[in-house]
Design a protein around this nucleic acid. Sequence first.
DNA 1: AGCGCTTACGTAAGCGCTTACGTACCCTAG
DNA 2: CTAGGGTACGTAAGCGCTTACGTAAGCGCT
Lengths: 344, 344
Amino acid sequence: MPRASKRPRLVDVAEHAAVSLATASRALAGRDGVSAEVADRIRQVARELGYVANPYARTLAGGASSTVGLIVHQVDDPYFSEIAAGVIQLAAEQGLLVQICQSGRNPGYELQQLRHLMAQRVGIILISGSGYDDPRVEAEARAELAAFQEHGGRVAAIGRHALGVDAVLPDNESGGFALAQHLMDLGHRRIAVAAGSAGLTTVADRLAGVSSAVRLRGPHAADLAVVHSDFTRGGGRAATEQILNEHPDTTAIVALNDAMAIGVLSTLRSRRVPVPARMSVVGFDDVSVAADLAPSLTTIRLPMTEMGRTALTLALKPRSTRPRRRPTGHLLVVRDSTGPAPTT
Amino acid sequence: MPRASKRPRLVDVAEHAAVSLATASRALAGRDGVSAEVADRIRQVARELGYVANPYARTLAGGASSTVGLIVHQVDDPYFSEIAAGVIQLAAEQGLLVQICQSGRNPGYELQQLRHLMAQRVGIILISGSGYDDPRVEAEARAELAAFQEHGGRVAAIGRHALGVDAVLPDNESGGFALAQHLMDLGHRRIAVAAGSAGLTTVADRLAGVSSAVRLRGPHAADLAVVHSDFTRGGGRAATEQILNEHPDTTAIVALNDAMAIGVLSTLRSRRVPVPARMSVVGFDDVSVAADLAPSLTTIRLPMTEMGRTALTLALKPRSTRPRRRPTGHLLVVRDSTGPAPTT
DNA sequence: AGCGCTTACGTAAGCGCTTACGTACCCTAG
DNA sequence: CTAGGGTACGTAAGCGCTTACGTAAGCGCT
């Protein structure tokens, strides 16, 4: 049975163009040392033959790997999937392929994924998601990433500043600050915070912003009750139960991300607590459903898709000696889930 | 400056174990022709050295590529991200890496992504998302996939039956059927369908289920108004506006996926149409937020994560001559967005 | 005319692995 | 005791690229 013809190789291109392998390679790589006419002829032939370089051979021979690795906590979490969408968009524009991994919010497993990517010689690695306070894991990751960069690997982080690599950093602290101010401006004095896992730097940063806004208002501006759970809708539900039980006079809940906020709203609804009449709720991130919730969610908008793109851009640029940090900007988006504090 | 030591190669393992390259390769690949003791020794050495095979060299030399490609419409659409989560989970368990691409709901661009993956010699390709009725593109994809499989490539589709490859197929038709029945059981007689792009097979199938349920009830069981938009929240909003304007006596809206349903609910809320008192709404998919919406959404549950896993399983198994089809099962989940038809 | 320099291209040595083939050895049958 | 066959392992030939190095031609200069 006559096999369909195999893919053309570089030799085929070289032969058809009547040049050597080396010249063909140079021409297609856009390296100089090839006259313009010859280069044109080679590119022309390559196009006609439908030649596409074998990435395995190319990488083996010392060329740059054309794939970027992306580690997220969970792809089906909108925060991460919106970031991923940005990364994938830009990667496609640059002709790069994205290898995606989930760490499942587990620092040890994340390190394992990272090792796997490095072992696979993925050239560029993006790590999205909050750092953990597990100092051992963090230190190991840091060390191995440093070695990886020594060998020419490129790395960027999104929302993690403790890794010693270039990073895109959301304005967590000032976002938290803005949220607390917004609530206090509305007259709220008993504010509860539904926070994610205590170990996450994102949690710590956002929380710090909230507290500093409260402190800044004066010694008795407002009471802050912090309840830790995790950054999921289920976490938001659990936190709400706890807040309702332990801090019944709360008039506003700050969920430290939108997933939690959705859980908060859901629980308040089933407990028949009217929002915002009896309880105001704010989130953080502005995932795209936030605007379509009932009530629509007041939150801090982070340019997630853009953050993904920026992270890849950062990793693509030649590395400077010191890790660069790129803030993201943020915006308080006021919607229907917040209103004046109820008069007692 | 003394470079950090390079990664161990197979020769290093072979030397330390005092065997030849070939033997080491065989032992680590688990191929036979190596005595048990020697194989153990080699594996032991490899572990001590922290040896991980270079995937580029392995693939170049004729080994199997260890990466699977996944094409989805949009990663930040929950339907696709939940499927992707399943694929990535199982891939990680199998030591495979997942290359993810977005087609942006554009058939031509999807074909381009497909070609890119094939050119990159990705061994396994999963294509998620509805087929299009663009016969030219579909035929081209079909042909190229066939050639890819001829060369040993493995392919599976999710929710597409026209590609001539193994496929995981959601019960679109019976799901639509169940939804329509549910509404008619509640007394609804004027039902509008908010459908995605007319070209999608998913739309056609779900719609067919709805219509056949209505027809089955008898000639004048219910009026069905179909409005086409697209499978996004915005599409749901647009469709709702149109339904409200053109079919004002509608009492129930069937959104053909949950994203649209969210848009429908959002628009009804802003138009002050109470759900379900004045209008019932159903969705399709049961994305994970569906339960946390206000009101929570009656919908058809599809095991999305499981579907992702199944698709990969299918692609991993040796191919049979005829494309296999694996149905997914479904479940009508009744929540708060549906109620009895309002009495006029 | 002879020198050195640049430019344009070819030659060939790998990159790290898999695998077809070859070879030494041991076992069993005749 | 030897022929035949299986088992365990080694040798070496690539896979399709990149790139260091070599070479020939062309240039301006003294």
